[in-house]
C-alpha cells in the first residue's frame, strides 16, 4: 500500500462539486414534473415536486426527532454491564 497516494475525495472542493452536482440532478428531476404527468392513486401525489419535497422534509424531520430522542435513549456503552 503506497500511503501518500492522493485521493480525489480528500479535497473539500471536490466534495463541494459533488454536492452541487447532486442539487443539479435533483432540480433537473424536479423540472421533469413540469411536463410529465405522473400517474398516481392519490391526488396529492400528483402535485408538483411532491416526492422531492416529501423526501427532503421526511429526512430532516427524521434526523431532528432522532437527535432529540438521544436525550432520552442514549446511554454509555457499558450501561448494561454496570
Amino acid at each position: 500500500m503506497s500511503e501518500p497516494k492522493d485521493y480525489w475525495l480528500d479535497h473539500s472542493e471536490n466534495v463541494t462539486k459533488l454536492f452541487k452536482g447532486l442539487w443539479a440532478v435533483g432540480l433537473a428531476l424536479l423540472s421533469i414534473d413540469l411536463f410529465l404527468h405522473r400517474h398516481e392513486e392519490f391526488g396529492f401525489a400528483t402535485w408538483f415536486g411532491f416526492y422531492g419535497i416529501f423526501g427532503f422534509f421526511a429526512c430532516v424531520v427524521l434526523v431532528l426527532v432522532a437527535k432529540k430522542l438521544r436525550v432520552v435513549l442514549m446511554r454509555p456503552e457499558d450501561y448494561y454491564e454496570r
Binding site: L22, Y51, G52, G55, V63, L73, P76
Partner: peptide, 28 residues
C-alpha cells in the same frame, strides 16, 4: 425524486453540522 432529495437532506444536514455525530454509546 424521493431518493435524490433524501440524499440532499443528508448532505445539507451534514454540511451545516446539524446531523448528529456518531458517538460511542448505546441506545436503550
Amino acid at each position: 425524486q424521493l431518493l435524490i432529495f433524501s440524499a440532499l437532506a443528508f448532505s445539507v444536514l451534514m454540511r451545516t453540522g446539524i446531523y448528529p455525530p456518531e458517538l460511542r454509546s448505546i441506545n436503550i
